[in-house]
Design a protein around this nucleic acid. Structure first.
Length: 276
DNA sequence: CACTCTACCTGTGCGC
DNA sequence: TGCGCACAGGTAGAGT
């Protein structure tokens, strides 16, 4: 499941890989499944995409943002969200469309940019201004400083796990890295954000930065038999019943805010300031 | 306003 | 073996 580190890996491979997408021109568009275009995309149009050149590739949270320039000099943004099962990659043009391909952009150098998504959750946007998709988002989870993180945390009285998943709080954290960060910080996922002791807030901020940057370095997570993007090894996610690597306690799985949540009941005790 | 819940999807893996 | 069903999860939008 692509989260910030996996999306960053896609950015790097498309931007810095060989061949790079930068400079490539869109020759034609194959919108295999029209539902892939988001209902909030204001100007998706195959004809508008045709002839565009890729000028930049970036990321905000889990959104991939492609800066485009058409032949008349108009700047556009192609935004892509991979959601759960989306994949975006360059292939030789003859492999442009396969079973789960939702969108393929034929390029002018014998390549195609292909968007596959078996579960049809992923979406694309063609917009003039990227803030149309990123506007409501909080600061990027890899870039947020401690002071801003701490002041935003105490602004809410919510369980910390669902808050971490809220993209308007910080952008880029999904279910896997929320569980991993809370484990690394030794914080129970149900702790109320505003009740976190100052030291716990500091540990959480550091844990998020460490976990995400390690995962970026590893080019994403490797979750045994379920998901493989890179080589980042998880400590709690998907390890229900297995031993905590620190204390040996069996990893628990509960539901918090409708999400499967994995944690160590021994290492992640209550970190609230209350004395209950 | 602040927060919670559901719909959207389909491949996988489990139990019967 | 084969069938059916629950489950996984990010976000928009509806609900409380």
């Amino acid at each position: 499941m692509p989260e910030l580190p996996e999306v960053e890996s896609v950015v790097r491979s498309l931007r810095d890989g060989c061949p790079s997408l930068i400079g490539a021109r869109v020759r034609s568009v194959n919108l295999v499944w029209p539902g892939v275009v988001s209902s909030t995309s204001d100007c998706f149009d195959e004809e508008l995409l045709e002839g565009c050149r890729f000028a930049s590739i970036g990321r905000v949270g889990k959104f991939l943002l492609f800066g485009l320039k058409n032949s008349r000099g108009r700047s556009l943004c192609l935004a892509v969200h991979l959601r759960m099962t989306g994949r975006l990659f360059l292939v030789p043009e003859r492999e442009a469309v396969e079973r789960h391909t939702r969108l393929a952009l034929m390029l002018d150098d014998g390549l195609a940019l292909r968007f596959d998504d078996p579960r049809k959750f992923g979406r694309v946007w063609l917009i003039d201004d990227p803030s149309a998709v990123t506007g409501g988002m909080g600061p990027d989870a890899l870039a947020v400083g401690f002071e801003e993180f701490a002041s935003r945390l105490t602004r809410y009285r919510r369980q910390i796990k669902p808050l971490l998943l809220d993209q308007s709080f910080v952008a880029g954290i999904g279910n896997i890295y929320a569980d991993e960060s809370l484990y690394r910080a030794g914080i129970h996922p149900c702790t109320i954000s505003a009740d976190l002791a100052p030291d716990a807030v500091r540990r959480l901020h550091a844990a998020i930065a460490t976990v995400l940057s390690e995962a970026v370095e590893a080019q994403g997570a490797n979750i045994d038999g379920v998901f493989k993007a890179g080589s980042f090894v998880v400590s709690v996610y998907g390890r229900e019943g297995a031993s905590c690597r620190i204390c040996g306690t069996a990893i628990s799985k509960i539901r918090v805010g409708q999400r499967g949540t994995h944690f160590c009941g021994h290492c992640q005790n209550n970190c609230s300031t209350s004395t209950t």
